[in-house]
Amino acid sequence: MGVIFQYIHKAFDEANGQPKYILKDINLEIGTGEFICVLGKSGCGKSTLLNLLAGYLKPDKGRISVDGVDIQGPSEQRGVVFQQHALFPWYTVRENVEFGLRIKKRKDAAAVAAAYIAMVGLKGYEDAYPAELSGGMAQRVGIARALVNDPQVLLMDEPLGALDALTRDTMRKELIRIWQISRKTIFFITHSVPEAVYLADRVVILKEGQIAMDTTIALARPRDIRSPEFLYYVDLFSANLTGNGQESMIAE
């Protein structure tokens, strides 16, 4: 079943009486447990697509369903990890991770939260406040906080975009590890081509509000970023993003 986008249209503005579509006729099916990366330049509508799936925005046309159920606003079944971690600054790491369980009055909140804090490798930082964490640590808390609810889908809006190159590299490996343990469907947004090729089962390129490419990456994990197959995918997507093969992108 998984996630299904059908005939999605979304506009925020009008031009000459016609809606200016940010997203135009998006049709997409994501299988359960699939790691999908949506790749695109800024302004291509990829964040809008995520906000629609999260339930923060409503489509002007079309429908989105998860496991056969139409989306009605935000839900803990679709956990979101934001670029700017969005942790509650007045709660400690533990309280942030427990948040989703506490509001459901779950008795096992402490134990479950502790397990997820250990899983993202933050044991010993339970009592720290978000202001005391580094960017990478805060992002791990954000991931643990979303996973605690055992969501059907994990939505990630450029979660590594605000991190430095070294931390980003570690976090990509971490993310694959966490995904392999939790076996969640991951809907991941990025503008980095190598990141998408490293992480995803499948890459969808979004251009001017439409799907320009939808490719499955047939590479075994862990992926070697210097292998010719890896570079083949990077070149393929880069060429598609820039519009022609002439321009080459500066690698990260």
Binding site: G55, E76, R78, V80, F82, A86, R145
Partner: peptide, 13 residues
Amino acid sequence: DPILIRSARSLGA
């Protein structure tokens, strides 16, 4: 911060 409201809603609040 609206992003905090969004994240709380996505955690089931």
